[in-house]
Each structure stands twice: as structure tokens, then as C-alpha cells.
Design a protein around this nucleic acid. Sequence first.
DNA 1: TATATTATATCATATATATGAATTTTTTTT
DNA 2: AAAAAAAATTCATATATATGATATAATATA
Lengths: 257, 257
Amino acid sequence: MSITDRKFEIDRDSKTPLWLQIRNELFNSLYRDELRPGQLIPNEKTLVELFQVSIGTIRKAVGVLEKEGFLIRKQGLGTFVFQHDSNSFLFEYFHFALNGTEKQESPTVEFISFETKKASKSEAESLNIPAGSSIHKIYNKLGLNKKFYIIDKIIISQDKFHGLNEEIFKNRANTIYNLYQNKFNIFITNCSEKLKAISSNEKISKLLDIDLGSPILKIDRIGQTYHNETIEIRTSYVHTSDIEYIHSQNSTFGEAL
Amino acid sequence: MSITDRKFEIDRDSKTPLWLQIRNELFNSLYRDELRPGQLIPNEKTLVELFQVSIGTIRKAVGVLEKEGFLIRKQGLGTFVFQHDSNSFLFEYFHFALNGTEKQESPTVEFISFETKKASKSEAESLNIPAGSSIHKIYNKLGLNKKFYIIDKIIISQDKFHGLNEEIFKNRANTIYNLYQNKFNIFITNCSEKLKAISSNEKISKLLDIDLGSPILKIDRIGQTYHNETIEIRTSYVHTSDIEYIHSQNSTFGEAL
DNA sequence: TATATTATATCATATATATGAATTTTTTTT
DNA sequence: AAAAAAAATTCATATATATGATATAATATA
């Protein structure tokens, strides 16, 4: 259903502000896929008619969604739905740079393996799927500057990625999140990472060509979509001799609405 | 000089929008300490008269500074300058939680040592001070749940913290950044952290009561004030058996203006 | 055809104004 | 003196409107 045909119910007597109601309605349209990644959304004048509010209220609602990262406004052009692609990937989810440098380069990605198997208990729990469900387990190698430093293990539910196989995964033209988005209609909206230092085991040592027991940065990432539905578990094993994980922030930034 | 006595120069013919000019003027007032941490800033009506623009333009400028974390608006009360204190500390700069938990508890902090010495070449370089200048080197121990997991090494220039000594540091009533802010008029506005996995050396092993060579998370943090002036170098050595470093984010959040 | 011009569409900035909500202060009442 | 009520202060929401900036499309011109 097109968004311009929708009937939106805005309650002028509600205690929640109009702009927030509209923000939520637009958010739901994203969630329900009435507005798709990359798509041009109706212009402000049309939204005014659709919601029967003033343009200032529309701009406030759209502005919040823009700050949240769901929409992108372009002056003279229109407002678009954010999409995962090779440009956005770089600065969003890849947090490594060569020692001492700030500039984040695009990593080289090399496929290692693709398996489909039964989820372990903890894997099933993290993905919130029934115990014993099928999952895809994918290994990748990531590098910077012609050397590989990172092993990525990706775990996703088979059910949510119907038809996914090694060929499709390997032949994707863009990022992994772009594949999720375009082929499987799953849009990753947020990630949470937990970092630890561990000793490398035999498998990791071999894959990264380092000594057994070397200190390794282990990153557990949970990738979620709308309404905090967990889609992906990704574990990164990083040899941090030449590269480092970067995390910058401003005063209270990050905790704001 | 009080901000209400200042003469602000707003250029209505400039290509930079009024709201941005005003945002910058207010930012400079923060930088120049005409507006101090915790202070109530003039109300919107006063700002309208001060800058001779409409209230919408003022609200836009203040709104941006609020999003950036420099101001905090309270309906019915006024707008205040953000300040470092024990409440804000928790969720801003401490990124650890016990394994599996999300909730961030306040860490226990225990003083280890306070030294004043000559800066090494790399320390001087990082702090952007002349080679051989005096610095303070402070060690702390941080813990959660009655166990210590973190050793913090803090390095600051003696020049910028005139009169600081062990007693003053130990007897502070609040956070370290609060001490900088209130006693030395230095306001930390942003931090950048770089993480690595290393093997613990003898000193760290002893301090954290762990085996020599255990994998350790090493965090190099640069604390800066207005205009990216580096104030503090902090290195954390973290034993991540029971705790983990947490980093969450939304789609494009973090890269927005 | 290629280039310059003009028109159109769309978001950005700015003003003016009215009403509401939350907090504090002042006044009145008991 | 204490409690309740009223007033004042301040930010929040919402409308209406005008002009500017930017990108694209359509048209006219060389």
C-alpha cells in the first residue's frame, strides 16, 4: 500500500505532540515497508495534506527521523529513506584504522566459508528462535592495507533469510547489510558491540597467521532491526598489532533522544 | 563579562544562517567562560532582544547546542549549561558492564599514586606541550561489584592544572572531570578512545592480580576541550574476564552534524 | 545539436503569533 | 505558621506565511 493512500489517525487531543505522532506514523511506514530504503518520500506539502497539520510540524517530525538516521533530506531534491550501501557502511559499522591514523579506510573482505547447521542453545537464545532451528554460519576475513587482521563469524536464522546460499552471499555486489536489505527485506537499524581481550585459539591463530595464545580483541555484535528484533550475531576476532578500534564521542552526545 | 552585556555581531547578509551564527556566538560564550557549567542562561525572550532575531531562530540555535550536549533545556525552568558531575559521568565516559548485563553501574574508584615528572617525547607530543615540560601522572584502580578490573593512567600537563597536587586530587568530592571543571576551569568536551588487545606486563599483572601475559584490553583515551585542545591522555588496562566494553549505536547516528 | 536560459519543485531559513505545560514565586486563606 | 490558590516565568507546541537556496526539467537560443 502506498503511503499517500494510507489513512493516518492523528489525535489532536492526545497528550503526545502532533510531531511525535507523525514521526511514529512515518516510522511505522518504514517498518511496514510502505517506505522502502532509498525511496523518495512525499514532499512536505503532500505530507501537510496527508496529516492535516502545518508544515512546521511536518518538518519537526521529519527532522527527528533524519537525526535518528532513518531519513536523509536533500535541499532542492527531496527526502529519501536511508539505505545501507558501500558508502554508508564505511563510517557506520567499521571501527578500525591503522595505528595512529584517524582516517577510516574501506576494508578488504574475503570469503572463507558458508555453512548451514543447527543452532546451539546460546545461539538460538540470542537470535530468539526455537532451539535446534537452522542457522547460517558464515566466516569472512577482513583486512586493511593488503594485510588481514579480522576474522568475522556471522550467524543468522535460516528462516529469516529464505533462499540464502553460498552463491548468493558470495556474489553480492554490495555490503552484507545491503544484501539483507535488498534481497531479504531486512533492514538493520542498530548495532550493539561488546568488546573483550582474549587469547587466540588454534583456529583463529591459523586463520590470522599469528602465534597461538596471542592477545586478540573479540567483538560480539548484535545487529537488530525495527523494534529491537535481533537479526544477526557477529563475532569478530581482531589482531590489533597494526590496527586499533576507534570510538569517539562528544559530551552528552549519544544519550540524547 | 556577563553575556547580557556583550555586543553580538550578527550579519544578516552573511551566507551562514542566523541560527548558526547565534549558535557559534553562544558556543564562544561557553568557550570564553561567559557562560559557566551549571549556569542558567538568559531566557529565550532575552536572547531575542540580545540578538535581535525571532524566537524561532533562537530556539533553533539553542536546540542545536542542546543536541550537541552543551546545553540542557528544562521546561518551565530555563536552559542550563551542561556540567560534569557524578550523574553525567556514568553514562558518558564509562563503557563497562558485567558480562551479559546491559546496565551500567557506577564503578568503584581507588587511588594508587600521584607523581609529577618530565614528559616523555611522545607524551609531550600528544599533549602538544614543549618537550621536557612537567606533567602529572596519576594511577587509579577501578572496579565493579567489589572487584577491581581496570588500571587507569592519567597524564595531564602541570601548566594547565596549576596548583594540583595529590591531596587535592584525592580529596575531590566528585568526578575527575568535575575537578577539572570546577577547580581548574577546564571543561572536557569530547573524548576519543582507541582500543587494542595486549599481553599484561609485570606491573599490570601485579596491580590487577592476574597472570603475567594475560590478554588485556588497552584503551588510549584523548580528552579534549573546546577547539580540540588536548587536555588529558588516559590509558586504561582492563582485565575483561568478568566485564566487557559496550558500544551501541543506531543507523547513521554518530555521524550526524 | 549543444548550450544557455528560464521555470519548477523541493527543502532551508526566518518572522510573527497564539496557546499549552511545567516550575517557581507570590499571595491568600485557614 | 501552614496549606491552598493564584500569578508569573520559561520552555514546548503549533499555525501561517514569506523568501532564499539548490537541483532538475523544460525551453529558447546560437
